[in-house]
Amino acid sequence: MKRLFHLFAAAVAFTACGSAPTLNVMTFNMRYDNPEDGENNWRFRRERAAEVIVSHDIDVFGTQELLVNQLNDLKELLPGYAAVGVGREDGAEAGEFSAVFFKRDRFTPLESGTFWLSETPEVAGSRGWDGACERVATWVVLRDKSGREFLFINTHLDHVGQVARDEGVSLLTKRIGSLRGERPVILTGDFNSEPGSSVVAHVQKDGVLRDVKAVAPLKLGTAWSFSDFGQLPEAERPLLDYIFVSGGFDADRYEVLPDTLGGGYISDHAPVMAVVEFAR
């Protein structure tokens, strides 16, 4: 009996040591709080948005378009999460955030920051190239309870300027190289670009980052992520939202989640999630 107990204990220990931790990751453009959105205004959607995060047990996620009141609503609705990020107009609370949220009881933040996608990335409120808006990237280095560390970076590229998107990606990849050290990387965001675009190709051209949709064995959901609250015909709805991972992560699953819940829209974008695993 004692020998069987020791064999069982050894088997449990082997299984625990042999299984790598997984992360449920999301990118979610939540649509800014626009009074003209009527029944789709944020005040009617905020609980639905939070419910999607909780119901899918998301560990870490990148947001786009949040205004400070929306950020504060999510902090209240999701008390188990911490957040990092600043407003893009002043580096404090003005303008949209590209905030990153992560579970408090799973991760320890080691360092974090925000830079502007412009020729002067450390200047708060700076606008880059031919961009129509100020654009930022927010990043955080997280240590998982397993002791593993990774860099998570989240952004929202310009919707007008092609040069701003191209140069924004160049800046992103350069900063990732300087921030990551030996750590693996997750990059999320609304890239305002479709899968066959030069922008998405540029993200992956040096071989460091891979589109989770391209490499995950299980793919679920729609081929699009933007419906404009259902106003676009399905055949015209683009995929604009992405999750990229570097070596050090294996992608198990990719899914575009529904953009509605309980009969109402959660955003004009559908959230995109992935299940990734620390490489053994």
Rank of each mutant, 00 (worst) to 15 (best):
residue 58 I to D: 02
residue 153 I to Q: 01
residue 70 Q to P: 01
residue 115 F to K: 10
residue 98 S to T: 14
residue 151 L to N: 10
residue 135 R to D: 06
residue 56 H to V: 08
residue 150 F to Q: 05
residue 108 T to H: 10
residue 45 R to T: 03
residue 147 G to H: 11
residue 52 V to K: 04
residue 37 D to Y: 05
residue 100 V to R: 02
residue 107 F to C: 03
residue 169 V to H: 04
residue 136 V to T: 15
residue 89 E to A: 07
residue 45 R to S: 04
residue 70 Q to A: 03
residue 113 G to R: 11
residue 83 A to V: 14
residue 67 L to R: 11
residue 159 H to V: 07
residue 143 R to M: 12
residue 161 G to Q: 00
residue 118 S to I: 03
residue 143 R to Y: 04
residue 115 F to C: 07
residue 46 R to A: 15
residue 167 E to Q: 14
residue 105 D to M: 10
residue 38 G to A: 12
residue 60 V to P: 08
residue 96 E to N: 08
residue 123 V to W: 01
residue 160 V to F: 10
residue 88 R to Y: 04
residue 137 A to G: 05
residue 148 R to L: 07
residue 152 F to K: 09
residue 89 E to R: 05
residue 133 C to F: 15
residue 73 D to Y: 03
residue 81 Y to H: 07
residue 42 W to C: 09
residue 82 A to N: 13
residue 131 G to V: 14
residue 63 T to W: 03
residue 98 S to C: 14
residue 47 E to P: 07
residue 47 E to C: 10
residue 119 E to T: 12
residue 117 L to P: 00
residue 125 G to S: 07
residue 81 Y to M: 06
residue 105 D to F: 12
residue 141 V to M: 05
residue 88 R to E: 03
residue 113 G to I: 12
residue 148 R to D: 01
residue 139 W to V: 01
residue 83 A to F: 09
residue 163 V to C: 05
residue 152 F to C: 00
residue 92 A to R: 15
residue 37 D to P: 04
residue 116 W to Y: 13
residue 131 G to F: 11
residue 148 R to H: 06
residue 162 Q to D: 05
residue 136 V to G: 11
residue 68 V to F: 10
residue 114 T to R: 06
residue 107 F to L: 07
residue 50 A to M: 10
residue 153 I to W: 02
residue 52 V to F: 12
residue 164 A to N: 06
residue 55 S to V: 09
residue 64 Q to T: 04
residue 138 T to V: 10
residue 72 N to R: 14
residue 60 V to T: 08
residue 108 T to L: 12
residue 165 R to L: 02
residue 45 R to H: 04
residue 69 N to K: 10
residue 71 L to Y: 11
residue 166 D to I: 05
residue 85 G to P: 10
residue 63 T to H: 08
residue 88 R to Q: 06
residue 124 A to K: 06
residue 127 R to V: 15
residue 125 G to R: 09
residue 112 S to G: 11
residue 82 A to S: 15
residue 142 L to Y: 06
residue 46 R to S: 13
residue 46 R to W: 01
residue 142 L to K: 06
residue 127 R to Q: 15
residue 78 L to A: 05
residue 60 V to N: 02
residue 135 R to W: 02
residue 157 L to V: 11
